[in-house]
Lab assay of single mutants.
Amino acid sequence: NPITQSQFVPLGEVLCCAISDMNTAQIVVTQESLLERLMKHYPGIAIPSEDILYTTLGTLIKERKIYHTGEGYFIVTP
């Protein structure tokens, strides 16, 4: 039996792509809307728990890849 190979993409990278897409579409990015986006637009991805999502978003903020305001999460533009 051949083994199907899937590509590994770090969660942080997927979140940045999803946040960027949602920002472009002017969709408010909350943790809930982000999870919905992942389920709908990234089939096959293991949906992270709320704790993992929260921690990963926190890491992306520390790395200055995203920022959070009262209006949601946004990509940091250079």
Results as ranks from 00 to 15, higher is better:
residue 49 S to K: 07
residue 3 I to E: 08
residue 14 V to D: 01
residue 15 L to Y: 01
residue 45 I to H: 07
residue 7 Q to S: 10
residue 3 I to Q: 11
residue 12 G to M: 15
residue 24 T to Y: 06
residue 23 N to F: 00
residue 1 N to D: 14
residue 70 G to Q: 13
residue 45 I to N: 07
residue 7 Q to C: 14
residue 67 Y to E: 09
residue 5 Q to C: 13
residue 61 I to F: 02
residue 76 V to C: 12
residue 47 I to T: 08
residue 71 E to R: 09
residue 52 I to W: 06
residue 68 H to M: 12
residue 66 I to D: 01
residue 35 L to F: 12
residue 38 L to D: 00
residue 46 A to R: 10
residue 16 C to S: 06
residue 59 T to Y: 08
residue 32 E to L: 03
residue 8 F to A: 10
residue 11 L to Y: 06
residue 70 G to R: 10
residue 38 L to Y: 02
residue 70 G to M: 05
residue 69 T to C: 09
residue 64 R to W: 01
residue 2 P to R: 15
residue 3 I to D: 15
residue 39 M to Q: 15
residue 33 S to P: 00
residue 63 E to P: 00
residue 33 S to A: 08
residue 52 I to K: 08
residue 72 G to K: 05
residue 15 L to G: 00
residue 65 K to F: 02
residue 14 V to C: 05
residue 7 Q to V: 12
residue 7 Q to A: 14
residue 56 T to S: 08
residue 57 L to T: 00
residue 37 R to T: 08
residue 76 V to A: 12
residue 32 E to K: 11
residue 40 K to R: 10
residue 66 I to F: 00
residue 40 K to W: 07
residue 76 V to G: 12
residue 29 V to D: 01
residue 59 T to Q: 12
residue 5 Q to Y: 08
residue 51 D to L: 04
residue 59 T to N: 07
residue 26 Q to W: 01
residue 2 P to F: 15
residue 71 E to L: 05
residue 20 S to P: 05
residue 38 L to T: 01
residue 3 I to P: 13
residue 49 S to A: 06
residue 60 L to G: 00
residue 66 I to E: 01
residue 36 E to W: 04
residue 64 R to G: 14
residue 28 V to Q: 12
residue 48 P to G: 05
residue 39 M to H: 13
residue 3 I to F: 10
residue 59 T to V: 12
residue 43 P to W: 04
residue 13 E to F: 03
residue 63 E to G: 04
residue 43 P to V: 08
residue 31 Q to E: 08
residue 58 G to F: 10
residue 69 T to N: 07
residue 42 Y to S: 11
residue 67 Y to T: 09
residue 23 N to P: 00
residue 58 G to P: 02
residue 78 P to M: 02
residue 74 F to C: 06
residue 8 F to N: 15
residue 56 T to M: 11
residue 61 I to L: 12
residue 61 I to D: 01
residue 34 L to Q: 02
residue 17 C to F: 06
residue 25 A to G: 05
residue 69 T to Y: 03
residue 36 E to Y: 04
residue 26 Q to N: 09
residue 9 V to N: 07
residue 26 Q to L: 03
residue 44 G to V: 04
residue 44 G to L: 07
residue 24 T to K: 10
residue 28 V to H: 13
residue 21 D to A: 09
residue 75 I to A: 11
residue 10 P to A: 12
residue 59 T to C: 10
residue 31 Q to M: 10
residue 10 P to N: 15
residue 4 T to V: 12
residue 69 T to F: 04
residue 33 S to M: 03
residue 23 N to I: 01
residue 9 V to F: 09
residue 16 C to H: 05
residue 46 A to K: 05
residue 23 N to E: 02
residue 6 S to V: 12
residue 12 G to H: 12
residue 40 K to Q: 09
residue 25 A to F: 07
residue 66 I to M: 02
residue 15 L to C: 09
residue 44 G to C: 08
residue 30 T to R: 04
residue 10 P to T: 14
residue 12 G to W: 13
residue 77 T to M: 09
residue 74 F to T: 07
residue 67 Y to N: 05
residue 57 L to S: 01
residue 70 G to E: 13
residue 54 Y to W: 06
residue 49 S to G: 08
residue 28 V to F: 05
residue 42 Y to N: 15
residue 5 Q to S: 11
residue 29 V to Y: 02
residue 16 C to D: 00
residue 32 E to M: 06
residue 5 Q to M: 14
residue 31 Q to I: 08
residue 4 T to R: 08
residue 34 L to E: 01
residue 14 V to G: 03
residue 19 I to C: 00
residue 34 L to N: 00
residue 58 G to Q: 14
residue 12 G to A: 15
residue 13 E to L: 03
residue 63 E to F: 03
residue 5 Q to N: 14
residue 52 I to E: 13
residue 49 S to H: 06
residue 19 I to M: 02
residue 51 D to W: 05
residue 21 D to W: 04
residue 78 P to E: 15
residue 9 V to I: 14
residue 55 T to S: 13
residue 3 I to C: 06
residue 5 Q to A: 14
residue 19 I to N: 00
residue 2 P to W: 08
residue 45 I to E: 05
residue 14 V to W: 09
residue 17 C to T: 14
residue 14 V to P: 01
residue 25 A to T: 06
residue 6 S to R: 12
residue 18 A to C: 15
residue 69 T to R: 07
residue 3 I to Y: 15
